[in-house]
Design a protein around this nucleic acid. Structure first.
Lengths: 260, 260
DNA sequence: TAAGATTTGTTCGTATGTATC
DNA sequence: GGATACATACGAACAAATCTT
């Protein structure tokens, strides 16, 4: 026998489960262990050597398990002394990418996206009224400055639109409802990808620029005044306008897998 | 030299990137390759042996790369003849789990969840009015039957509440807007986890049962009649009621990592 | 600056498990 | 049941990154 350390692979774990491979079982065990121990982001995980001993498995197997956790953003790993694996909070970027891949093979239309934006963004705006610091309001105004003048050509138009989406993403991140913030941010991310990779909004549109900008200026004012209903109404109008301007853009989306 | 097959590890990929490990680089290359080739779910990927040759890397490295893709739900793997790796559509379950982990360390309140449900579920209901088949309507009515009688004890109450959440999840899946459907389903999933793992709604509440059920019956009727605005209004009332009944439940959520 | 220690990263060769024919 | 084709797992050595002295 070459593998004397072959512990009885626990035929009695649970009969119902379709029998997963060892690395995924190890990964799940580690997840459970983290929850059980109440570990928090930054806390140390056992090193490779210890895991090899604890699970009685080969190095490669353990490494594959850690790769699974890394791919899901749950642990980070560093080499060198003091290095090792650590519990990691899943970043917003990674969560966006992971979720984006779910929609890769689904057909999502521009209209689908705007159905959600119209439902969510006004809610976000309303819930933020009167709750932003001057610094945060200033950050929003700084983004507005990026498209203070109308775009000269299609390229500049595209850059401005990306910046405008960043306005919404920034607003989302200021929200205290992490769920709402993520969803809004996610959709801004999709539209950003589209503009960058797909040349949406190719035609400079002076009217869009003028109205969009005035909406956002009015929105900042309402937020500063703490007028939730005004903020909601302005955002609703803003979204409705944006959707109407893209009515002919039936394009399906997701031109790539999202990385990280 | 022990590693003569060490091809120049392409020092010229991109200088800016923080230098990822080989497995993640391979995983990203495969993702790009899938997109480039326009592969679809079920299509074959090169086997281990071929990938080893193509990338000039060791088996372990390639295996770690495939683990990353598996963990993200992008490929599935089978052993045996005719086996190998295949492009896989990310399942809704996996997407839910992956996204759920993002919120693990964040504090999400019941109120946060209901802020979203109130914004989204009425929209979903409205967009489904008049667009469901008799079969789909029947499926919804079948779920309603699961709690036709008031719950006798707390356990039964809990089961009924889970079933009631399944009503919403089912409705979500009938939606044609994949984004909206996922978000609604995701929140039903969170609440289901809470009820199952955390004994929420411990007190049988006859009034909740009566009103909730009558809402859902009226909703099905509106959906069948094709009355979008009625469906929206009923769902809004339903959600508002549900939120009010949990106002004291400030509990934070996410008691475990979601598996698969 | 340089050497050493520590920890993950990668490789190679071999053996085992599993599903198909 | 045996042969085949594939993933899965093991183990030992070597490489690279990073911290300490």
């Amino acid at each position: 026998m070459r593998h004397p350390s072959e512990a009885p692979p626990s035929r009695g774990e649970f009969a119902a489960t379709p029998r997963r491979s060892r690395p995924v079982r190890v990964a799940e065990a580690i997840k459970d262990w983290v929850v059980e121990k109440g570990l928090k982001p930054g806390d140390r995980l056992p090193g490779e050597a210890e895991l090899i001993a604890r699970f009685g498995m080969a190095k490669g197997t353990i490494r594959e398990a850690m790769r699974i956790l890394q791919a899901q953003g749950l642990v980070t790993t560093k080499t060198g002394p003091g290095g090792g694996s650590f519990v990691g909070e899943v970043s917003a970027d990674r969560a966006r990418a992971l979720l984006g891949n779910y929609f890769f093979f689904k057909q999502v239309s521009i209209d689908d996206i705007y159905q959600l934006r119209i439902a969510l963004e006004p809610e976000l705006a309303a819930s933020l009224a009167g709750r932003l610091t001057e610094e945060q309001l200033g950050a929003l105004e700084a983004i507005l400055e990026l498209y203070a003048a109308p775009a000269a050509d299609a390229t500049e138009e595209r850059d401005q639109h990306v910046a405008s989406l960043r306005f919404h993403a920034t607003l989302a991140r200021f929200g205290s409802n992490a769920l709402l913030a993520f969803f809004v941010d996610f959709m801004a991310g999709i539209l950003t990808d589209l503009t960058v990779y797909q040349r949406l909004y190719a035609e400079p549109n002076l009217e869009l620029w003028r109205q969009g900008r005035s909406h956002q200026i009015a929105l900042i004012d309402a937020l500063r005044r703490g007028d939730a209903e005004a903020a909601r109404a302005i955002m609703h109008e803003h979204m409705t306008l944006a959707r109407r301007l893209m009515e002919d853009q039936e394009a399906v989306v997701m031109k790539r897998f999202m990385q990280d």
